[in-house]
Computed example of a mutant assay.
Amino acid sequence: MTLLDDRIERIAIRSELPVVGATEFVEQLLAVVEPEPAVPVASALLDQAACFYGRVLDGKKGVSPSQRAQIRSAGKAFVAAGGCLDVMTSLLSRLASHVMGLMTSRRFDRMGDLLDLAHVLMHEVVAGATELRGSNESSRQLHGRLVERLLLHSEIAPEMAEFLKSEYVVASIRLPRSIPLDWLVAVVEKGRLDGFLCASLDDEAVILVPERSKKNLARLCAEVELRFGVKPWIAVAEPRLFGAVASGYKEVKGVMALVLATGRAPGGFYRLDEFLIEHAVVSDPIVSSRLLSVISPLVDNETLIETLDVLIRNDFSRSDAARDLFVHRSTLDYRIRRIEEITGYSPSTGRGSHVLCMARTVYSISKHTR
């Protein structure tokens, strides 16, 4: 057990609550820290924070001016070691939530002091990191700004352009469960040795991969799965000259929306070629509006919308759909007739199945973009 494990366990004991996975919690916190030299700095900083929480629980004052200076120096040291500030602030937030969660059911009467301490720790770490950034911006942040400028068609400064390769594959990555986006970006940044550039935009990690390094996307997928225990979705656009990556970003955003709307399984690489018809349909606002009007009367009927979803998932095979729904074939036939009565299209015909499938996709995308 590490010193930080012991701090958290003592907090749990003070709260008279059972210790549940203290070591696992600490390992989870530190597992996302990159690069390797930043890990011991992060461990020491979190240990300091846990010690200060323990002082508050013992009725002592939170942080003295000299201790605040120590936390500020630790924040500076973490960024100097190559650590991502967003990752550290996220770790401090999770530690604070963990401590407050332990104390809530005990009705601890100094919860306000714990909250004040959390704010102080966050402020000093950010202040320390900002001091360093003011004189020597980390390459990670420089790369992030470079990606954002490329994707948003902003002008590129000469000192930033020196990092660029001639062609990039544009990719976006998402996970099927909630993971702080900055953690995901930190793992992606490990690929910098391959020339990867990464930034977080619109709730997803966007990656620019040099054309010669695109084979390493599979390695990245495996690394993400290893770190977070889940397979990611990755949408990919074909290589583009660095001046045209904005169009690739628009493409992968559209592909990712279709991946999620059509219920594709995580763990694969998805490209526009797999969604040509769907993409053409959702890109036309008039067609999309008509299809929404077809499916809207059906969505409030949970039984029928589930039946349609299962039919779509089974390529409209009624035998397979009846099996997956655990219903008799005659029950399924009745539901199919009801779907036709409500929408005007029958799932048992070629034309009807195509229209209903597209309508369901358009509706799913509209939900994601509200």
Results as ranks from 00 to 15, higher is better:
Phe52His: 09
Val327Ser: 09
Leu121Gln: 13
Val20Glu: 14
Ala237Leu: 03
Cys357Glu: 15
Leu151Gly: 05
Leu30Ala: 01
Ser64Arg: 05
Tyr334Val: 11
Asp116Asn: 13
Ala77Asp: 10
Ala12Arg: 11
Leu102Glu: 12
Ile11Met: 12
Ala222Ser: 14
Ser200Thr: 09
Leu291Ile: 10
Leu91Gly: 05
Val170Pro: 04
Leu260Cys: 07
Arg106Cys: 07
Asp284Asn: 15
Asp113Gly: 02
Val26Ala: 00
Arg149Leu: 09
His328Arg: 14
Arg107Ser: 14
Ser293Leu: 10
Cys51Gln: 04
Arg110His: 13
Val230Ser: 12
Gly75Leu: 01
Thr303Val: 15
Phe228Ala: 05
Gly54Leu: 08
Arg174Asp: 11
Phe163Asn: 09
Pro158Asp: 08
Val310Phe: 10
Val20His: 08
Ser66Glu: 14
Ile339Phe: 14
Gly128Cys: 08
Glu341Ile: 09
Arg149Trp: 04
Phe316His: 11
Val355Asn: 03
Val282Ser: 01
Ile336Phe: 06
Arg329Asp: 14
Cys198Gln: 03
Ala280Met: 09
Cys51Gly: 04
Glu238Asn: 10
Arg192Lys: 10
Ala77Trp: 00
Val41Gly: 00
Glu306Phe: 06
Val33Ala: 01
His98Lys: 13
Met103Gln: 13
Val355Phe: 03
Lys250Trp: 14
Val20Asn: 11
Val33Asp: 02
Val245Ser: 05
Ser330Cys: 05
Leu46Gly: 02
Arg177Ile: 14
Thr343Ile: 06
Leu325Ser: 07
Lys250Ala: 15
Lys250Val: 10
Met122Gly: 14
Val147His: 01
Ser296Leu: 06
Gly350Ala: 09
Gly352Arg: 11
Arg290Ile: 02
Val255Asn: 03
Leu241Thr: 02
Pro232Ala: 00
Leu193Asp: 15
Leu241Asp: 13
Ile336His: 01
Val126Cys: 12
Ala171Ile: 04
Glu36Thr: 01
Val287Trp: 12
Ala222Arg: 13
Gly248Met: 07
Asn301Trp: 10
Val87Asp: 00
Leu92Ala: 06
Val79Gln: 00
Ile11Tyr: 06
Ala50Met: 02
Pro65Tyr: 04
Gln28Thr: 10
Tyr53Asp: 14
Asp315Cys: 05
Ala12Ile: 07
Ser138Lys: 00
Arg68Thr: 08
Ile173Thr: 11
Gln67Ala: 07
Val39Asp: 03
Glu36Met: 03
Ser213Leu: 03
Phe196Trp: 04
Asp6Met: 12
Met111Phe: 15
Ser364Thr: 01
Thr130Met: 13
Ser64Phe: 04
Met100Lys: 13
Pro180Ser: 03
Asp320Ser: 10
Gly62Lys: 05
Arg14Ser: 06
Asp47Phe: 05
Val310Asn: 05
Ser346Tyr: 12
Pro40Leu: 04
Ser293Phe: 05
Ser353Leu: 12
Arg177Pro: 08
Ser138Tyr: 00
Ser283Met: 12
Ile207Ala: 04
Val355Gly: 03
Arg10Ala: 12
Val224Asn: 02
Gly344Leu: 13
Met103Tyr: 03
Arg271Trp: 09
Val362Ser: 01
Leu197Tyr: 07
Phe25Arg: 07
Thr2Asp: 11
Gly191Phe: 13
Asn136Lys: 06
Val99Thr: 14
Arg68Cys: 09
Leu308His: 08
Ser353Tyr: 12
Arg313Phe: 15
Ser172Ile: 07
Leu142Ala: 09
Pro65Glu: 08
Ala44Gly: 04
Ala49Arg: 00
Gly248Pro: 07
Thr262Ser: 12
Glu306Thr: 11
Pro65Thr: 04
Gln28Trp: 06
